[in-house]
Simulated scan of single mutants.
Amino acid sequence: MNALRVVSLIAATMTTGLVTGVYFSYGNAFIPGLAKTDDKTFVGTFQAVDRAIINPVFLGLGFVGALVLTLLAGLLQLKEKALPWIAAAFVLYLVTMIITIAVNVPLNDAIKAAGDPDTIDVTAVRAAFDEARWRSFNLVRTLLGTLAFALLSYALVLTGKSQS
């Protein structure tokens, strides 16, 4: 049980960090880079990248996996000092998922549904995308994910201290 407790917490911490890293990379490289392109490049590239990220590895092991692993880690730490930190991380990460599903995904889906960049009004599609809204909510989920990662990291420290 001790090994499973530690392994689940390590896995929760790693997957939370990986997904938060995706948010961070989008906010600091991908979207700023696309912002400097013409409308057709923006729409076409965004569509291609968003289609690519919808895969079992990212969605299952990363995006959903981080929440499930954090829940598992919390359940295995019910009588331990790390539980409040894990619980707080769970709530913060859950909020990042809610933001993603409520704000970022609908914006992403709208740009994907617009159609082939060779046959649509890419200027209108880009304007409707609302880059500022997407960036603002991405920043929030990045900050919350980073805080969740920090809390899980601290839970690891507490767990390590209790093991010695």
Rank of each mutant, 00 (worst) to 15 (best):
L76W: 07
L76S: 05
P32L: 04
E80H: 14
T119M: 10
Y154D: 00
M97F: 02
I53F: 09
I31N: 07
R5Q: 14
P32T: 06
N55T: 01
A132L: 04
V95N: 02
A148E: 08
L92A: 03
P56C: 08
R5L: 02
L152D: 01
L158W: 09
V49P: 01
A150C: 08
P56H: 02
D116F: 01
Y93D: 01
K40M: 15
I111M: 15
L156F: 02
L78Q: 13
T96Q: 00
I120L: 14
Q163W: 07
A89F: 11
A48K: 01
D118A: 15
A127E: 11
T100L: 11
T15Y: 00
V95Q: 03
L75G: 14
K79A: 10
L107C: 02
V57E: 09
V91D: 02
F149K: 06
V6K: 05
A148C: 01
A148S: 12
G145F: 13
S153Y: 07
F42R: 03
A73N: 01
V7C: 02
G74M: 01
V7F: 15
L94T: 12
L139N: 03
K40A: 14
T13I: 05
I101E: 10
L4G: 06
L61A: 15
A35Q: 12
A35C: 05
N138V: 10
S136R: 12
V6C: 11
